[in-house]
Amino acid sequence: MSSVGIVGAGRLGLAVARLAVASGHRVLVAGSAGPARVGPVVASHAPGAAAATVTEAASADLVVLAMPLTAYPTLPVAALVGRTVLDATNYWWELDGLRPDLADPATSTSEIVQAHLAGASVVKSLGHMSAADLEAEARPRGATGRKAVAVAGDDPAAVAQVVRFVDDLGFDPVVVGGLAEGIRFEPGTEIFGGDVDAAELRALVARFPDSQRGRYLAKIRARGGR
């Protein structure tokens, strides 16, 4: 059993918590409202998990970011030094507002999070499937029709840790490359929102440069990133 700290007590955070508990992990869930208010939600929607402070969740073996991306500056940087941080956040301009700093085509959002959490190892994963699909599509290892989840990171040990966790949750992990390659499964890409197997996920990753989003990013970056 390993410990998993989930920062975010919304639908995604609770879905990951339920799957992690079912796979035998000890799970801590933290929300912006604090343990006293998050506790009843966790007890009701993720039995077996425990409510915690963000700092407590940050002490887990693996830390999952399931909160709004705009909240990343509030993360406890010192507490996350040396930790593997699974970044499942995304930038949603409809909800987050127009944020040029988060929509910069010269970088991926997970690289922005990594720059803030300089002492941690950030790995992007889980965020390209909805909370509902994560629970509906989870399958035992080797099961027919098992879906795939993309993984991108720079630290081999951290990537391996996330790969094991994704497999535990019920999905075939597909490593797509370094953290910068996480842009291949951000909103607006073919992978985002899709429920596909490992072979199809690899095919989508491979044809990203020729996709509408891929061509757009290449064009913008060729002009200096703006």
Rank of each mutant, 00 (worst) to 15 (best):
Y91E: 11
V41F: 02
P40K: 06
M67A: 15
H128I: 07
L80D: 08
Y91R: 14
V113R: 11
S110R: 02
M67F: 13
E56F: 06
T109M: 08
A51V: 09
L69R: 06
G31V: 06
S44R: 14
P76N: 07
D101A: 04
A132G: 05
L80Y: 12
S110K: 02
S59A: 15
P35D: 01
D101M: 03
M129C: 05
G48K: 13
L86N: 03
L95K: 12
K124P: 04
L98P: 02
V85L: 08
E94T: 09
D104T: 13
V38D: 07
S59G: 12
V63C: 11
V64I: 14
L80P: 04
L134D: 08
A60I: 11
T109G: 09
S110M: 12
Y72F: 15
A33D: 15
R99I: 10
H128M: 09
S32G: 05
D87M: 11
A49C: 02
E111Q: 08
L117E: 00
S125N: 07
A33N: 14
A46G: 01
Y91M: 10
A79R: 05
V64C: 12
K124I: 10
Q114E: 10
A132C: 01
A71E: 13
A132M: 01
D61F: 06
R99C: 06
E135A: 07
L65G: 09
A132Y: 03
D101P: 03
H45R: 15
S121Q: 13
G119N: 14
G97H: 09
T74N: 13
L134H: 03
A88L: 14
G97Y: 10
S108K: 04
E56S: 08
P105N: 01
G48I: 13
S125R: 03
D96S: 10
